[in-house]
Design a binder for these strands. Structure first.
Lengths: 216, 216, 216, 216
DNA sequence: TATGAATGAGTTTTCATTCAT
DNA sequence: CATGAATGAAAACTCATTCAT
């Protein structure tokens, strides 16, 4: 008979990771010391170094988690069989909801987007970075696919895909910079925000009729 | 006859600031040491500390410059007498062009958006932060004004202004994350990018006819 | 059977403190770098910062030690049941002996008496200062008590207590400025010095018969 | 005919010196920067370096001033023809009054008594130190003379002169550590303090009848 | 696993001092 | 005389990381 808790072990990594994400999100990566994280979980540095080889690996792990968490919510929607506009809209909503529901993880990622372009010295860290870049690329490709399809299809305005993709993704990421849960906020409130942003993203890709006021 | 400049303006400050913006943009604020900046202009740390009291003040100065530079390009457009859609579109283009034309300054700002929310301990630094917040608020209000007007006017889709504003601004800021001048790029190329993004931003605010494929 | 000591007491702290007291006493607080202290014990700055948060805390710890060491020698004498003059005299001797027997600690304190009146910025350092002030106050009160009693009693000349107290204490502290152990000095020599000073202190408080040469 | 003020020039040095004394007294020598002093008189570093070669020279000048100011008040009293007890008492009062009437200068000196034992590297500074030591020695000799005389004379208790001298001088210097002018304090108040301390100093040197309570 | 001690390299900051104007 | 810019050397502190236990 088990003495106490059911699945005892694997908690540590996740506990540390949550604390790291929270600290990085609150104070920024550089402003967070390993001791800060340790203190946040009532442990010592040593414990963290048992589970992660370096501070950089901690950041990598948070980034990876962020992508996996988002993918987990967006990919099923991507796979559902929908027309481009509906498909994009559902993906956008799922993405925004992921952003605001696991805010710390995603904030860390967005605020360190270009980190690691230079830096990681050890082969191990370079490998991690590479893996993350691959995951990131794969995730973006979900949106790239839908957008490309929609453009071919006529559902979306035809334009350079890369610019459109990055612009729209940043629009969907924006809540990371300003969102913060209000007192007494409900799930419905969050859905409303997600819908508003997804609507805008969709509109941004929509074919324009004709410029009623002539634009210069 | 001299046009305007104070002639003997010691451009030391500006030289340092440019170097700081470049370094911060390339390596990130935390990864840049004061020595890096000094080395970049062939001077010593001491020179920098003679003109700026601290690394944080350097960041503040870059932020302030960024806002002023952008304002200088966008405000005249704001003041021109145009209908909401045209007005917003011109402002958006001006904003994007500012982003990519003084990339380092703006990249620093966007990548450190939430820096200084906590931290600045000295009264002097707090005052600087306050001033920057005021400038920032003022700048955002240009867009807030146009958007609000457009909504009342029917030119824009009616929706919560704050979310719309922040979303659209982040869309306009997005180039900061991915843009980098290509070999042989012309001014026209940059205008094209700015136009594409401004078009999307305008579309994001545009009233939607009717959802042809029903959205969930 | 072990008498008392906590056996495994990591005397790192005490080692560092002794070295700090010695350096501060020799060169002065401001003229001593943390590296000086580290070098004195064959360690690195890091070790010191592992045990003490700042140079100021090091000074505070020395001050505290000084007061505790002195108290440990003077308080038992205070508690013994003696008439005011004898009591004061024994306390004075104990005080002077403490001064010259742990010279470095006390020299540091006396030479930095007013340090920290302004300065300590962190709450932690302010708390330390407060604690020290309390200890200091408590220690002075031993003498204040005896002096007050003696004045009421007629054993001492009646006069403003505060001025008398501070004057006499500084007289007892004076060796800190000039004493330095001579070649071949014995414990008896030190007792002689202590007795001479204690005698003077006692005389300073003694009721004056009549001014034989009229004082202006 | 002079344009404006009578003796125009020599003010600068004294102005600077006063400011230096005030700053050193308030914050301590090491905690005071040349800029602090410059700011205190609304000038710049350069001005100070025109009048004093170094920070150390500034300290030396303050020390010298302190001794000269005190001498100026005590020496005339010393030269007056009085019996040892009266002579000592008058000198002591003059000394204490000097202490509290030019507090900053004397505080600086007492708090830096052992400064310069090591340190001054330039020949010029060493010469200054030597001069100060000579002045200091000369000043102390006034008291040494009176005390020695009194001991031979029977007016004072016979005891090792050096210890007695240093002890009594520190007693007379003590106000430097605690005195601070009260609201509405009069000259008479200051005289009262001086008299109380001088009385104690005199008593400290007075021959003791017999220990009524036997001292251990 | 986890802890606490220790390290060492780096970073920000301070400041006395010099110098051209 | 006085200023403002610039320097260079030192100093306090930080912190990721290692290691013995």
């Amino acid at each position: 008979m088990a003495l106490d808790s059911p699945a005892k072990a694997p908690n540590s990594r996740r506990t540390i990771l949550d604390a790291a994400a929270a600290c990085f999100a609150r104070q920024g990566f550089a402003q967070t010391s390993i001791d800060d994280i340790a203190r946040a979980i009532g442990a010592t540095k040593g414990k963290i170094y048992h589970h992660f080889r370096s501070k950089g690996e901690l950041l990598s792990a948070v980034r990876k988690s962020s992508i996996l968490l988002t993918s987990a919510q967006v990919e099923p929607v991507f796979l559902a069989n929908q027309a481009p506009r509906a498909r994009f809209h559902s993906m956008a909503m799922a993405h925004v909801r992921a952003m605001i529901e696991q805010l710390p993880y995603h904030r860390v990622v967005i605020e360190n987007l270009r980190k690691g372009d230079i830096g990681p010295s050890t082969p191990h860290e370079r490998a991690l970075m590479q893996e993350i870049r691959t995951l990131q690329r794969g995730y973006e490709d979900l949106f790239r696919t839908v957008i490309t399809q929609g453009m071919q299809n006529g559902a979306f305005h035809s334009q350079p895909v890369s610019v459109a993709l990055h612009s729209v993704l940043m629009l969907l990421n924006a809540p990371v910079f300003w969102y913060h849960p209000r007192q007494g906020e409900t799930a419905a409130d969050r859905v409303a925000i997600a819908r508003q942003i997804a609507d805008m993203a969709l509109a941004a890709l929509t074919p324009r009729a004709e410029p009623k006021d002539p634009l210069p």
